[in-house]
């Protein structure tokens, strides 16, 4: 089993883990903006950069993203060196210039000593930091690929295909859920949900009547996972209640 040293602590790890995995398990704080446990690491925000070196190569050091860098036995990691803090401050400064109104970015930037951006703020933009989580969750986790990116470089943006409401979207709102800066608007009423300029009817729990899933999402999941047609008739709470009751019955027997 490989062992690595993070900020002076010798830590055991599993083969195939990333530096960030080890940090998380050991409660070592590393900021991230484009990372999510359920989604493959991507390395776009560059906030999780750490400094590495290795006794095997004296004099060598490098800066890598913790969310992607695989552990190797003997690796020495600094998560909070002066250079790492400077890099993060610059990344956050740049993001603050991009999204001056985002409270999430303001707060993070302040932690790295950036109160006001040193760069030219974008005045007409939204709070999207282009972390790509929404696109990736939709593609990798939901399996729908309803949204994507358009353009490149400074004019890159998250977009619906053809700039029309995305036809493939099932209204699951996973994208809105993972968005770190709350850019994706969701309007929720008992009967419908509006997201990406589309309105989705809600499917109601047959028992308590609470809407818990969109009709499209229900149909999609049933088709995708080959589930019985009534699988989503109960909401999670009622489902749990039923299970508990069943268990009770069984234990009384």
């Amino acid at each position: 089993m490989p062992e690595i040293i993070i900020d002076g602590r010798r830590l055991k790890c599993e083969e195939g883990e990333t530096v960030l995995d080890v940090c998380k398990r050991n409660r070592i704080e590393v900021p991230t903006l484009c990372y999510h446990e359920a989604i493959e690491s991507w390395g776009g925000c560059r906030l999780c950069m750490v400094e590495i070196s290795h006794p095997k190569w004296p004099g060598w050091s490098n800066w890598v993203t913790a969310c992607l860098y695989p552990v190797q036995d003997g690796l020495v990691v600094g998560t909070n060196t002066t250079r790492v803090r400077r890099l993060r401050a610059t990344v956050l400064d740049l993001l603050l210039a991009r999204c001056p109104n985002s409270s999430v970015i303001q707060k993070l930037a302040a932690e790295y000593g950036v109160e006001d951006t040193n760069y030219e703020p974008r005045l007409d933009g939204d709070n999207c930091i282009l972390c790509g989580l929404c696109v990736r969750v939709c593609d990798e986790v939901i399996g729908v690929t309803a949204i994507g990116t358009a353009n490149r470089g400074a004019s890159k943006e998250i977009s619906e295909p053809l700039k029309e409401p995305p036809v493939d979207c099932i209204g699951c709102a996973a994208c809105a859920y993972v968005c770190p800066t709350d850019v994706i608007q969701v309007i929720q009423t008992p009967d419908y949900r509006v997201i990406w300029d589309r309105t989705f009817d809600m499917y109601k729990c047959v028992e308590c009547g609470i809407s818990h899933i969109t009709v499209e999402q229900k149909d999609w999941l049933i088709a995708k996972d080959n589930l019985p047609a009534d699988y989503y008739d109960l909401c999670d709470i009622c489902k749990r209640k039923h299970t508990a009751e069943k268990q009770k019955e069984l234990s009384m027997l």
């Binding site: 760069y119 930091i129 282009l130 470089g153």
Partner: peptide, 20 residues
């Protein structure tokens, strides 16, 4: 700046700010 793919922050935002 125009050719940056726009995936990562230092290149996408950094080159824009440098040009400015």
């Amino acid at each position: 700046k125009e050719e940056s793919c726009g995936k990562c922050v230092p290149c996408r935002e950094g080159l824009r700010q440098l040009t400015a």
